Computed example of a mutant assay.
Amino acid sequence: MSGAGTEGGIGPQPMSDLKGYLVKAFLVTCALTALAEVAVFQVEDRLLAPVASALVSSVGSEVAQESALGLISRLPRLLAELVLGSQGPSDALRPEADGLVALLLLMQALVLLPIVVAAVVFAFLVDGRVRAVQEAFARERRREEQERNLVVADLAHDLRTPVTSIAALSQALADDVVSEPERRREYLRTISHKALAVGDMVNLLVEYAQLDSEGFRLERRRCDLAELLLEVAAEAYADAEREGVLVVADVPERPCPILADPTQLARVFSNLVANAVRHNPCGTTVAVSLERRGTVALASVADTGTPLPEPTSELLRPFSRGDSSRSTKGFGLGLSVAKRISDKHGFGFALRQPAGAYTKAFVVSCPILEEG
């Protein structure tokens, strides 16, 4: 199914890859350091090396030989003496030799300077990036916490209403307030319907809590996506008929092997179908379909019901339950469960609105395994 309109992934955009950024920063820093070292060598070769050669000639062969051959072993000590301002008589050199040593120390420092500067700059970049990532995580956590509190408040309200009705109707039946058999059956049907609604909300909360638990693991295995979709559609027929909604399945008979947790993936499509059945007007058609595009399978749940209000990206974020969301009679938590399970599988999860002949469609995309 295709069509112009709103289409895209649902949920917050992933944060920048810290590892990739650090690798790029390291490579750029190394490249700039190499360029700086080349520039330093050119300066030393053109400006400082001639001066050093002149000093070597002026101090004489013996001292020059001593300064040249013993410089590596003596540089740390000489550098300490220059910094501390103390030099023993036995180590005293002629003024020309002092100048030569100082010049060689300067050349050594110039070679090390780009490396030191690069290390400081890289450390600054790493610190800044890590701080930015931590702040982004903190903001996201605060946002999710606020929205989670809104969800709890909304669900408490949604649970209070049917529970109150169940209690009132049950009390009326217990007190024989209603004596007509038909009205008693109507009360019982209402109690059953509201009890099922409460159970559905509780089940969604349990499912979402399980997805966040440390012990949650996907049990991936080879399964047939076509068979899974047909089973989901068949299980929804009874509820759909009760709500006056038509469920159709457009799934090819050819197997579509994928690697997934069939139990969890069935929850994705069951939640999508349940939302479409329960939150659209009577007479809506809900289509469960499967399409192959090369090595990718596109499984969709579409309907001809009420369009989702814009912006859908905000409406369908996990725990997003604003006023516009509530106007759609509860779209949100079931979709959040479906989105989270798809994400854990690494599957795509997108909304198309409109979608061909349908008002909207939720599409799950996943790679197809090689058959055979």
Rank of each mutant, 00 (worst) to 15 (best):
G5Y: 00
G5Q: 10
Q13Y: 02
S16W: 02
K19W: 10
Y21S: 04
L22W: 13
V23W: 15
K24C: 12
L27F: 10
V38K: 15
E44N: 15
L47D: 10
A49Q: 05
V51P: 08
S57N: 06
G60L: 03
I72E: 08
I72F: 11
L75S: 08
V83Y: 04
P89I: 09
S90R: 15
D91Q: 15
L93T: 13
E96W: 05
D98T: 01
V101G: 05
L103H: 01
L103K: 07
L106Q: 04
L112G: 13
A118Q: 08
V120S: 10
V120A: 15
A123F: 07
D127K: 04
R131C: 04
Q134T: 09
E140L: 06
V152Y: 14
A153S: 08
A153Q: 12
A156C: 06
L159D: 07
L159P: 04
I166C: 12
I166Q: 11
L169V: 04
Q171L: 11
A174D: 11
A174M: 13
D176P: 11
V177L: 15
V178I: 09
P181H: 13
P181S: 12
R184W: 05
L188E: 10
L188G: 05
R189E: 00
T190L: 08
H193M: 08
V202D: 07
N203W: 07
N203Q: 14
G215Q: 11
R221P: 04
E227L: 14
A234G: 11
A236P: 05
D239G: 15
G244M: 02
V251A: 06
E253G: 08
P257H: 00
A260N: 06
A260W: 10
S270H: 01
L272V: 04
N275A: 04
A287S: 12
V288N: 03
V288K: 05
R293P: 13
A299S: 03
P307S: 00
G322A: 03
T328S: 01
K329V: 03
V337N: 13
K339E: 07
K339G: 15
S342E: 00
G348R: 00
Q353C: 01
P354N: 06
A355M: 05
Y358C: 00
K360F: 00
V363R: 05
G372R: 13
